[in-house]
Amino acid sequence: MKLEIRLFAGLRCGNPELPCYGQSECDLEVPEGTTIRELRTILAIDPAISLLSMVNNHHEHEEWVLKDNDRVGMFPPIGGG
C-alpha cells in the first residue's frame, strides 16, 4: 500500500535503501498492515526520539495500523505558543 509521508522539525528518512533517504517528504510503498512503529523502523528514524504521529489529521499511537493512501505526519517533541 502507498503512504504519503511528511517528516517535520528536522526528521529525515535515515534508510539509505529507500529512494527518500535524507528527505522529509515522500510517497512510500509499504506492506499492508504496517503500524506506525514499523513505519518508523522502515524509515530508520532514531528510536531514541519520542515521536508524535498524525494520521489523516488525527494523533495516533505507535501500534496504529496504517491504511492505503494514509497521510502520515511525524514530529519529534515540539512546543511553542
Binding site: G73, F75, I78, G80
Partner: peptide, 20 residues
Amino acid sequence: VTGEGLPAYGTNVLTNVLNE
C-alpha cells in the same frame, strides 16, 4: 522541547503540527 525544538526552530515550529 526546551532543549532542542524551541532553540532550533522557535515557536513557529508549530505551524506544521497545527496544520497537520
